[in-house]
Amino acid sequence: MGDSRRLIVVDAANVVGSRPDGWWKDRAGAARRLLVEIAGLAARLPAADTVVVVLEGAAKGAVDGAEPSAPRMRVVTAERSGDDKIVEVVAAATGYDRITVVTSDRELRARVEADHAETVGPSWLWNQLP
């Protein structure tokens, strides 16, 4: 039997916004710092796991072709609503045994749970990071 495959989808705006560290002064910089940390996490995860980080608004400035990367980590930008993009990523996901969405947004949680994803809050992700 093969490894269980898990997709972790990160609501970057929600995770960054969960810590009052001045992120609002430089949204792209805060998103870039989060990407660096998630790249480190992605490299340590089991080989069957994939992480998708969704960026929206000013945070999309973190993606300039030189953003941090890691095996099994993808960065997706939302043209409009980050929540809608997350729902789209979850709905399009195939071949995964588990889908975990990292967010504390109640409405988004309900939307992705309706599509059989589980949800965890930002503290879960922060606890996984060094």
Rank of each mutant, 00 (worst) to 15 (best):
I8N: 01
I8R: 10
I8S: 01
V9R: 02
V9T: 13
V10N: 07
V10K: 04
V10F: 05
V10I: 15
V10G: 11
D11A: 15
D11C: 12
D11S: 14
D11Q: 13
A12I: 13
A12D: 14
A12W: 07
A13R: 03
A13M: 05
N14H: 11
N14E: 06
V15R: 14
V16P: 13
V16M: 07
V16K: 12
G17Q: 14
G17A: 14
S18C: 11
S18N: 12
R19A: 08
R19W: 11
P20L: 08
P20G: 10
P20D: 13
G22C: 10
G22L: 08
W23R: 07
W23M: 05
W23F: 15
W24T: 05
W24Q: 14
W24Y: 14
W24P: 00
K25S: 06
K25E: 12
D26R: 13
D26V: 07
D26L: 09
D26I: 10
R27M: 09
A28E: 07
A28Q: 04
G29Y: 12
G29V: 10
G29T: 05
G29S: 05
G29C: 07
A30P: 10
A30I: 07
A30D: 08
A30C: 06
A30G: 04
A30K: 07
A31K: 04
A31N: 03
A31F: 01
A31Q: 01
R32F: 06
R32T: 01
R32K: 14
R33V: 07
R33F: 01
L34T: 07
L34H: 08
L35V: 02
L35K: 13
V36C: 00
V36F: 00
V36W: 00
V36P: 00
V36H: 03
E37L: 11
E37N: 07
E37M: 12
E37K: 12
E37G: 02
I38H: 09
I38V: 15
I38S: 03
A39P: 03
A39V: 00
A39L: 01
G40M: 04
G40W: 01
G40S: 09
L41I: 06
L41M: 12
A42Q: 04
A42K: 01
A42T: 03
A42E: 03
A42G: 02
A42S: 13
A42M: 01
A43W: 04
A43T: 11
A43C: 03
R44N: 04
R44C: 02
R44L: 09
R44Q: 11
R44W: 03
L45H: 02
